[in-house]
Each structure stands twice: as structure tokens, then as C-alpha cells.
């Protein structure tokens, strides 16, 4: 019963996502939705690391950057196929995650936040200064469109389908991880590292793997970004972006995947609200874009004060209420 409902929900999700490019050929809307899909992938990975395992990262934008630059360089610099670029970007970001996991074995809370923040800053400097590979402040342009088996994905609709297809697979896999053994161990680690150790959880290995998977997903999103936009520049991968990503997970709620996914969709759409609501005035959009960071900040404060468990907590509360009503 429960299982068939899950399958039905997934199929409905696939249908909705697949229907969008059939219903609209609005290039602006599709491009905005591509950014949303990319953020869904990054946030799924960050929810795993921060929301489930309780390990903070203020360096996730850097992993996105590693994926984006690596894939851009491999394809447009070395002339290798798109898929090789994707694999290289994802793998390199995951390796970066392994490195960043090292401080997490010794540092907690604020100290880990500082270490990961430092990592983002270091990578940011590298993105700007390693001109031979990254193009420096000017960035890299002319990154080729994705191409698999001779099929070039050069229309907004095809890129939309590629990004959202990937996002669906990622969310599905992460959902399975969080409800299985690794997810339970992560939630245990989050609750009490001592308690997790006392249960036989190999905490060091769990942290390293979670960091690697989380960073790898950010890297994968980065490769999609590079080929979707065709251009990468350092500012996309600044510390500010890492803060925004973390804010999305906080608003979405810890110990939840659905919450952060919903939050990433809502908060990424916000500054581009005119894509969904065509009649929206230019001044409203200008306001939303100028005050974007402030709106995220306010959203975070509202969540921390009114619903500390975020959107995910609200979903859980609603579920248990409906379950209570069912059983009377």
C-alpha cells in the first residue's frame, strides 16, 4: 500500500517534470527552471551532509565550481567528450570532498564552519588566479553543449530535460540513502557522535563518505551548469553562494530531504518570479533581485523562530496529524 503510493508519487513527479517542455516553449522560463534543477541537485547533497549527518559546509559553492571548471576545461580545453567532462568534474569534486572531510574528523560546529569557509575562499582564489585553466576573472566561455551519442542538447527544452532527469535520479538515490542504513547512522551521528560510536558506527568513515558523496553531487551540478550556460566565472562559486545553499537547507529543515528540495525550488524561483507570473511588474522583480540576500536572511530568521525544524518539520507534523485523524 505504502509502497505503491510511493511509486505513484514518483510517477506523478516524472509526468509533471516531463510535461513542462510540452506545455511551454518559453525560453526564459525553461532557463530559470534549469537553474532550479541544478540547485535541487546541490541541495540534495548538502541536505545529506548538513541536514542528516550534521556536518556543516560553507564550501559547497567551491565544489560546484570544481565540477564546472573541470568539465569546461576537459571539454573545451582538451576537446574530450561531454560525458568525460561530467565524470571528471564529479570525481574531482568528490576528491575535494574527501580532503575537506579531514578537518571534520577533528573539528565540530563553528570550527568546522570556519575550516570549510576557508576552503571556499582558497578555491575562489584559485578560480581567479589559475588563469591557464580557469580563464581568471574573465572566466571560460564557449563551453560546448551536452552531447551524448551524437545527440546535441542545444535547445532550452533538451537541457531542461537533461538537468531535471538528473535531478530526479539524484533525489531518488539520496532518498534511498537517507531511509536506509547510512541515513540512520547519519541521523545518529547528528544526534550524538558519542552515541553513534557506542552503536558501532564507524564515524570517521561515515563522515568521509558523506562529504565525498555530497561534494560529488555539487560537482555534478557544476558540470551541468557549465554546459547549460556555456560560460563559467569565479563569482558564481563565491562564499556568498555557499551561504545561500546552506540557508536553503536550513529553511528546508534538518533531517529532511523533501523540505530542502521544496525550499531550493521556492527560493531559487523567487528572484525570477516573472518567469512564472508574466504580468509581474519590472519594479517587483528589481526589488526581489536587489533584496535577494535579505529575503533569504529573513526566511532563515522566520524559520528559526517560528518553525525551527523547517519545511521538513512542517511536513512531518502534518503527516502525523493526518495519521492521528485516520486512526481516530
Amino acid at each position: 500500500m505504502k509502497r505503491s503510493m510511493g511509486v505513484a508519487a514518483w510517477m506523478a513527479l516524472v509526468a509533471v517534470i516531463g510535461a513542462v517542455p510540452l506545455l511551454t516553449d518559453d525560453r526564459y522560463l525553461l532557463k530559470v527552471l534549469v537553474f532550479v534543477g541544478i540547485n535541487v541537485i546541490i541541495v540534495s547533497g548538502l541536505a545529506l551532509l548538513f541536514g542528516y549527518a550534521g556536518q556543516i559546509s560553507l564550501g559547497h559553492a567551491a565544489f560546484v565550481g570544481i565540477g564546472a571548471y573541470a568539465s569546461a576545461y576537459v571539454t573545451s580545453g582538451l576537446g574530450l567528450p561531454w560525458l568525460v567532462g561530467v565524470l571528471a568534474g564529479t570525481t574531482l569534486a568528490a576528491i575535494g570532498g574527501l580532503l575537506l572531510a579531514m578537518p571534520s574528523l577533528r573539528l565540530r560546529g563553528h570550527y568546522l564552519a570556519m575550516a570549510t569557509l576557508g576552503f571556499n575562499e582558497i578555491m575562489y582564489v584559485i578560480f581567479r588566479e589559475a588563469r591557464a585553466v580557469t580563464g581568471g576573472n574573465d572566466g571560460l566561455s564557449g563551453i560546448p553543449f551536452p552531447e551524448v551519442l551524437g545527440v546535441r542538447m542545444d535547445t532550452p527544452a533538451s537541457i531542461y530535460l537533461l538537468v531535471w532527469g538528473t535531478a530526479l535520479v539524484v533525489v531518488f538515490l539520496v532518498a534511498n540513502i537517507v531511509r536506509g542504513r547510512p541515513g540512520r547512522a547519519m541521523r545518529g551521528l547528528h544526534g550524538s557522535e558519542i552515541g553513534a560510536l557506542a552503536c558501532g558506527v564507524d564515524v570517521a568513515r561515515l563522515k568521509i563518505r558523506t562529504f565525498a558523496v555530497s561534494a560529488g553531487l555539487a560537482g555534478l551540478a557544476g558540470t551541468l551548469y557549465a554546459h547549460a550556460v556555456g560560460f563559467v566565472a569565479p563569482s558564481t562559486f563565491s562564499l556568498e553562494q555557499s551561504v545561500v545553499l546552506l540557508a536553503i537547507v536550513v529553511v528546508g529543515g534538518t533531517g529532511s530531504l523533501a523540505g530542502p528540495v521544496i525550499a531550493s525550488i521556492a527560493l531559487t524561483l523567487l528572484p525570477y518570479a516573472d518567469a512564472l507570473i508574466p504580468g509581474l511588474g519590472k519594479d517587483v522583480i528589481a526589488f526581489l533581485q536587489d533584496w535577494e540576500a535579505d529575503i533569504y536572511g529573513i526566511a532563515m530568521i522566520v524559520v528559526v523562530v517560528l518553525a525551527p525544524k523547517g519545511i521538513g518539520g512542517l511536513i512531518r507534523a502534518a503527516r502525523s496529524r493526518s495519521r492521528a485523524e485516520e486512526t481516530g
Binding site: 539520496v174 540513502i177 536506509g180 542504513r181 547510512p182 541515513g183 540512520r184 545518529g188 552503536c199 558523496v213
Partner: peptide, 15 residues
């Protein structure tokens, strides 16, 4: 979580 030591499934198999 206490049953952890007797379980085998890792990230890949769980995913």
C-alpha cells in the same frame, strides 16, 4: 542504529 554492526548495506546498495 544499534543494530548497525550486523548490517552490510553501504551507500551504493542503499541508494
Amino acid at each position: 542504529v544499534g543494530v548497525e554492526p550486523s548490517l552490510r548495506a553501504g551507500f551504493v546498495r542503499s541508494a
